[in-house]
Amino acid sequence: MTGKIQAKAHLTRERVCELLRSLLRIRRFEEKCAELYTTEKIRGFLHLYIGEEAIAAGIIPVLEPQDAVVATYREHGHALARGIAMGPLMAEMFGKQEGCSRGRGGSMHVFDAATRFYGGNAIVGGGLPLAVGLALADRMQGRNNVTACFFGEGAVAEGEFHESMNLAALWRLPVLFVCENNLYAMGTALAISESETDIHRKAESYRMPAAVVDGMDVIAVEAAGRKAIELVRGGAGPAFLECRTYRFRAHSMFDAQLYRSKDEVEAWREKCPIEHLKTWALGAGLLHAEETAQIEGEVAREVAAAVAFAEAGTWEPVGDLARDVHSPGALA
């Protein structure tokens, strides 16, 4: 794989451990969320990113602190990769006021001003115009920031996708569009919803540089992400990255998965981004088995502490119901 061979030269042991830790934090956090869903600690919709972790873990750490991130309702991985602490994230899942959105958003609406994390947008395609506007504001104010906008391949069928691609390209705005192509828009397969299934080709029609990458390979994603972010920050306008990936779990917790075969799921599980990285790094001598165990242990402790933090969190008083509908003092 070219991305890996190119990247290998400057991959240090530390970097491999960081990537593994990043993937594992998302995986173990979400496995715990699924468990907590069955015990009704977490309610509402819960969309797990399991299987797709390499995309957020590969791209987001390449961003600078002043850059912006716009994500979807399947955004726990992006939030963790961006540096939102696991405790407040878990408290948000619980709906506690110690959550990163004060509990008002839940799983689908994670926000964080400190890391410029703009959701947590749960209308498919709705986050794309927002990313265009954030980039427009950066451009108009002379800030050399990048806005990374993550969305699934289902969003590509929406008008807002095309409107946003056109606006970003027309105005040469610094947006990195990242399509997480997991092949299913809820239960609708790409092949029965799109006339052009090579998604990156749509971006090319907007005269936007576009690439496709194996979204199960964190090293390849990181290399492609780095290249695209450099391009965008260099003032070339927006860029587009299609990451081919797969959701191992159901769409949400209410999905019987009638639309895909167990064989297909199993075949993709074989490409698990965590196992993939571990096998390769162990073989390349960049990782030792005991380091893997150590990281696993540390992540398990972090998840346990996050759950404890959320459990210890408090419920917002009902008297605060009308809070944050308007800015303080703006409206009675």
Partner: peptide, 23 residues
């Protein structure tokens, strides 16, 4: 001037407002 993209440019206005402008 914008293209005929009401969802796109109203959403971009929201994003620009978040980004510190007063659109």
């Amino acid at each position: 001037d914008t293209p005929l993209s009401e969802g796109g440019f109203v959403g971009a206005g929201i994003g620009a407002a978040l980004g510190g402008m007063r659109p």
